[in-house]
């Protein structure tokens, strides 16, 4: 009995910490509509330090591949959907503007 609780208590504490990882106290939408979506926090890894390749060296892209294109002050950048679907969030800076590309 004692042994079981020694194992269970930390587990319980852990799962509680996971459930309360985000503070929903002042949510502006119904709290019961904020649901877990399968992968845990950061289970889908956002990109924080994206690297870029010149267009003529992007051999991993087919002509028909879908991209999200952004132009800021004449600087153009493309974000292939086939990379975005794995990361969902790219934190980037383009022409000095901090942007987030999200899919």
């Amino acid at each position: 009995m004692k042994k079981t609780s020694v194992v269970l208590l930390p587990l319980l504490a852990l799962s509680f910490a996971f459930v309360t990882a985000f503070n929903l106290d002042n949510a502006i939408v119904p709290r019961d509509e904020i649901l877990s979506g399968g992968p845990p926090k950061d289970g889908i890894p956002a990109l924080l330090h994206p690297k870029f390749t010149p267009a003529d060296q992007a051999g991993y892209l087919e002509p028909s591949d879908a991209v999200v294109g952004v132009v800021i002050e004449g600087r153009a950048r493309a974000y292939p959907l086939k990379i975005l679907v794995w990361h969902e969030v790219v934190n980037d800076t383009l022409a000095g503007r901090p942007i987030v590309v999200t899919f």
Binding site: I34, G37, G38, P40, K41, D42, A46, L48, E88
Partner: peptide
């Protein structure tokens, strides 16, 4: 900077 929360 932003990450993916796992919540929907």
């Amino acid at each position: 900077t932003f990450g993916v929360s796992g919540r929907l």
